[in-house]
Amino acid sequence: MSIPNEKLQQILQEISQKKAFAEQQLVIVRQQKVANSREGRMLQLTASEMESLPKETKVYEGVGKMFVCTPIPDVQKRLSDEGEKLKGEISNLNKKEDYLEKTYENSKNSLEQVLGGRSG
C-alpha cells in the first residue's frame, strides 16, 4: 500500500510542525523552570535571613517606589505564601515539560517511521 506523494508530504509537514512546536515550547518551559528555581532560592535566603533577625527589628518592604515598615511575621507569611505558589508553578511546569518531551519524541518517531517506510 503506497501513500500518494502529496499526502505523504502533508503528513511529514504536520509532524515536522508538531515536533518544532514541542521543541520551542520545551525551551520556554525549561527557561521558566530555571527562573522559578532562582526565585525560590531567593525566597529561601530571604526567609532564613528573617529568621536570624531579632523580633524587634524593623523590616521594610518595597511597595512601588516606596518602602513600608512591615512586621516580621507578615513578611514571613508573605514569603511562605509565595514559596507555596512557586512550588505549584514548578509542579505544573514539570508536567508540561513531561508532556512536551513525549510529544517531541512521538513526533520524532513518527517522522522516522514515515521516512523509513518510504525508503523501503
Rank of each mutant, 00 (worst) to 15 (best):
M1R: 07
S2P: 04
S2I: 15
I3R: 08
P4H: 02
N5C: 05
N5H: 11
N5A: 14
E6K: 15
E6A: 15
E6P: 00
K7M: 04
K7N: 00
Q9W: 00
Q10V: 15
Q13H: 05
Q13T: 09
Q13V: 08
Q13K: 04
Q17E: 04
A22Y: 01
A22T: 05
A22H: 02
E23G: 09
Q25Y: 01
L26F: 08
L26A: 09
V27W: 07
V29M: 08
V29I: 13
R30P: 04
R30N: 13
Q32E: 13
K33G: 01
K33N: 03
V34K: 14
A35S: 08
A35Y: 01
N36Q: 13
R38L: 09
G40W: 10
G40T: 12
L43N: 08
L43W: 09
L43H: 06
Q44F: 07
Q44K: 14
L45M: 14
T46K: 11
A47M: 10
E49C: 09
E49L: 13
M50K: 11
M50F: 05
S52L: 13
L53Q: 07
L53T: 08
L53A: 06
P54Y: 00
K55S: 12
K55A: 13
E56K: 15
T57E: 10
K58H: 01
Y60Q: 07
E61S: 10
E61A: 08
E61K: 11
G62Q: 15
G64V: 02
G64T: 03
K65M: 13
K65L: 14
M66N: 14
F67M: 10
F67V: 09
F67H: 04
V68G: 00
T70R: 11
P71W: 00
P71R: 06
I72P: 02
D74M: 08
D74S: 11
V75Y: 05
V75A: 05
R78W: 05
S80L: 12
S80H: 12
E82A: 08
E82H: 04
G83I: 03
G83K: 09
E84F: 04
K85L: 10
K85V: 02
K87R: 13
G88Y: 00
I90V: 15
I90F: 14
I90D: 15
I90A: 14
S91T: 04
S91K: 14
N92P: 02
N92G: 15
K95R: 14
K95I: 12
E97V: 03
D98P: 01
D98R: 15
L100E: 00
E101F: 07
K102E: 06
T103M: 10
T103L: 09
Y104I: 07
E105Y: 07
N106S: 13
N106Y: 04
S107Q: 02
K108H: 10
N109I: 05
N109Q: 02
E112R: 13
E112P: 03
E112G: 07
Q113R: 06
Q113E: 04
V114H: 06
G116K: 09
G116M: 03
G117Q: 00
G117P: 00
G117S: 02
R118S: 12
R118G: 06
R118A: 11
S119L: 09
S119V: 06
G120W: 08
G120L: 12
